[in-house]
Computed example of a mutant assay.
Amino acid sequence: MILIKHHNEGNLEPYFYFALEKYVLEHLLKDNETYFFTWRIKGIVSGKNQVIENEINIPYVKEHNVKFFRRPTGGGSVYADENNTMFTIITKRSGQNFSFKNYLVKITDAFKKLGVNLDFSGRNDILLDGKKVSGNAFLQNKYGMLMHGTMMYDLDIETMVRALNPPDEKLISKGIASVRSRVNNLKPYLNGMSHDELVSYLETELTSSVYEINQEEVEQLKKDAKFYASSEWLYRSQPEYTQKLSKRFDWGHIDMRFNIKSGMIQNVDITGDFFELKEDLKSLEKPLLNQVWSYASIKEILNSIEVDKIILNATNEDILALFDNAFIETNN
C-alpha cells in the first residue's frame, strides 16, 4: 500500500480527512493501487444515513462540549478521542462482492507480528479476546472503494457511553458496565508500546511507498473540507424523520410533533391538555411550516408569535424551552 503523508496531525476534526479521502478516491487512485493513512479526531461521528439528534445524548454533549460530525460512509455512530486512531484504506473495486475481511486482514496480520491475535466478527468489527477494538465503515462508487475504521488504543469508554444515547442516568450506568464487557483497548496488550509507536509501526508495516501531499493540495483540501463542516452536510443530508417534543408546564402538558425532510419542517402537529384561546392551533403551527429546522429559526419564528394569545397562561419562553434538548446548537 501507499502511505499518504497529509501533514494534518494535531487537527482533531475530521473535515480535512473526509476531503482527503474524496480527493484520493477521485483524483489520485489508479488501477492496482491502494492508499493508506491514519488520523485522529475527538468527538462523535455519525453515519451518512443517521439522524444525528437521535444518536447523541444532547444534554451531556452540550454540557461537556463534545463535538459531533457526519461522515460520508454508512454504519452507526462512534465516539473517538485522541487515544484512538482512525485509519483509511482506498483502492479500486474488485469484481467480487465487497467484504471488510479482505482488507482488514492486513491489519490483523500486522498485529500478529506484535503477538496480538485479532479476530473478525459480524460484518465490520475486529475483536481482541472476544471484545471489539475496531469498527469499520465503507463506501464504493465508480472511482473505487473507501474503507475507514477505528482502532481503540486507550479510548475513554465512559465518555463514549455517556456521549451517545440514552441520556437516562440508570441506563448509562448499566450501559457503561455492558459496553466494557463488549469493547477493549489495545494498550494493555502491547508491552509498553506507545500510541505513536503503534501508529508508526502500522504505517511502516502496511505500506511500501509514500505519497506526500504538497502545500497546494493542502490548501485545496482545506477549502474542500468546509463542505463537511457545513450545516447543510450535517443536518440537511439527514433522512426524513419525525421529531417529538414533550413537556409539562403549570398551564398544562404539550406535545409537538414535527416531520423533518432535508432539514425543513414539512408538518407540525400540536396536542396536549392545555386550554386554547382560539378555535384551533393553526396560528401557532402554520408559521413553522416549510421553515428550516434549527434552533435559531424556531426562535426567530416564535418571536413573531404571541403565544399567550393562543394558549392560556403559556409564554413564548415556555414554548422555546421545548427545543432546548432538541438541538445540539442552541447558542444562536
Rank of each mutant, 00 (worst) to 15 (best):
V218S: 15
T204E: 05
R123N: 07
Q215T: 12
E203I: 03
D224R: 11
S208I: 07
R180M: 05
G192L: 14
T150A: 05
E212Y: 08
L186C: 06
T207H: 09
D196H: 03
A225M: 08
M147F: 05
V133N: 09
D196S: 10
L146E: 01
E205H: 01
T207C: 14
E205I: 00
G122M: 12
I172C: 10
D154M: 12
M160I: 02
K222S: 15
Y228I: 04
L128A: 04
F138A: 08
K223A: 15
D168L: 09
K223T: 14
F138N: 01
V179R: 00
M145W: 01
F227K: 15
I176S: 09
D224T: 04
M152E: 01
G175P: 04
A163N: 04
L186R: 00
L127F: 07
E212P: 00
L118N: 07
M145A: 08
L127I: 09
N136H: 02
L186V: 06
K174H: 14
N124M: 07
G144S: 02
Q215F: 15
M152I: 06
D224K: 13
G122T: 09
G135T: 06
E212K: 11
E216Y: 11
N185C: 03
T207Y: 03
D129F: 13
V199R: 10
G144Q: 07
E158Y: 09
T204G: 00
L202H: 01
E203G: 00
F138T: 07
R180P: 04
Y143N: 12
G175E: 03
Q220F: 12
E205K: 01
G149D: 06
Y228C: 09
I157M: 08
F227M: 12
I126F: 05
I213L: 15
S173Y: 14
M151Q: 12
N165P: 02
T207R: 09
L221T: 10
V218F: 15
E216I: 14
T159G: 08
M193E: 13
L155F: 00
N214L: 03
G175R: 06
V210A: 02
S200G: 02
I213E: 10
N185H: 03
D119K: 15
S200L: 10
K132Q: 12
D129R: 13
V199A: 03
L127H: 06
N141L: 11
L186D: 01
P188Y: 05
I157T: 08
P167C: 06
E216Q: 14
E197K: 09
M193W: 15
N185Y: 01
E219I: 13
L190G: 09
N185P: 04
L146T: 06
K222G: 11
S200V: 03
P188H: 02
N141P: 09
S200W: 01
M147N: 11
M193Q: 13
G130H: 11
N141G: 13
Y189M: 05
L190K: 06
D125C: 08
L186G: 00
R182Y: 05
L190E: 05
D154V: 09
I126T: 09
D196Q: 04
L118A: 07
Q215H: 15
M152S: 00
N191F: 07
G135R: 07
Q140V: 12
